[in-house]
């Protein structure tokens, strides 16, 4: 094995895909779709740490994504902050917020935990909708360009490389975290909280840590998204958007970082592909999701890996 550990092979493959893609993307529309895949993937890689490894569920991650987006929009737009400072402030604030809510919320288990995070997400969404003077309300607000020291990425191509680089960093961080003592502790928490604490793992601390990490990644992706599209609405923080993120993680395969990438890619690209079906778009979308979940319960990537292993004993 040595250098060719599976995870290193994975990250190299990801780098290769990122490097090759520009050669086959014919126009800005394709870049746009791929950039959205990348931004969603950053959220999913973070969320997967929480769901797949920590064994906790969050139905409120779009709330963090939305908060990050609005921090960037309001601070750069209304108060003329430099985008990087706004992005960092958003990430830190979301980190603090998630830290504060993590303790009471993560004490809950199963359905109650899902309800807790769902409630938090909805509160954020309501706040963004109602604070019309700050956020522009349901109609949304424009976001200035992502200017760094006078330079701003204007074309989709430039954004592609920015998002690609950040995605690589996120994946690399996630893979490292998973294989660190923290990652092992998390997996033990996932397996059995009782056994983990008997083995001396501070269960609460690790759950909070991973919740905060995934929230900060969502906020970060939200800020990027806001600057990239130049216009945001409270829909970014909606309950349905949270569900979308969770679906991406589950579809791609829980506890598989690359599964999260594949999940994000499929759920972002699929609506574009299915436009051919016109009125049957939603039907096909639902059927594909149901089919995957029925026949590939572990999610796409882990199921396919198992299949490949079985075919090649």
């Amino acid at each position: 094995m040595g250098f060719w550990q599976p995870r290193r092979a994975g990250i190299l493959a990801l780098a290769a895909v990122i490097a090759v893609l520009p050669a086959v993307l014919p126009n800005a529309f394709y870049y746009d779709v791929v950039i959205l895949v990348g931004i969603n993937a950053i959220v999913c890689v973070g969320l997967n740490l929480l769901i797949g490894y920590g064994g906790q569920i969050s139905l409120g991650h779009a709330g963090f994504f939305g908060l990050g987006a609005y921090f960037s929009a309001v601070l750069t737009g209304t108060y003329d902050w430099p985008p990087l400072a706004a992005l960092a402030t958003g990430a830190v604030s979301v980190g603090v917020l998630s830290f504060i809510v993590a303790r009471p919320i993560l004490k809950l288990k199963g359905h109650y935990l899902a309800m807790g995070t769902l409630g938090m997400g909805i509160i954020i969404s309501i706040a963004l909708n109602q604070e019309v003077d700050i956020t522009g309300g349901p109609d949304g607000m424009p976001v200035p360009a992502f200017a760094i020291a006078g330079w701003e990425p204007s074309s989709e191509q430039t954004w592609y490389w920015i998002v690609a680089a950040l995605l690589m960093i996120s994946v690399w961080l996630a893979l490292n975290l998973i294989d660190s003592p923290v990652g092992r502790a998390l997996r033990s928490v996932h397996g059995s909280e009782v056994a983990a604490s008997v083995a001396g793992v501070d269960v609460t601390r690790y759950k909070i840590l991973i919740f905060v990490v995934s929230a900060v990644m969502a906020s970060f992706a939200g800020s990027l998204y806001a600057h990239y599209t130049g216009f945001i609405t409270p829909d970014e923080a909606s309950f349905f958007h949270s569900i979308e993120f969770v679906t991406m993680v589950v579809l791609g395969g829980m506890a598989s970082t690359f599964g999260s990438l594949v999940g994000a890619a499929i759920l972002t690209i699929l609506p574009q592909l299915l436009t051919v079906l016109h009125d049957f778009e939603m039907l096909a979308f639902g059927a594909i999701l149901m089919g995957t979940m029925i026949f590939m319960r572990k999610g796409l990537v882990p199921s396919l890996v198992d299949l490949a292993k079985r075919a090649r004993p």
Partner: peptide, 16 residues
Amino acid sequence: IGRMLVRLGRAVLPAL
């Protein structure tokens, strides 16, 4: 996984 990603890309792009 990498190969799968590439294959996915190949399948998806022409369809798009």
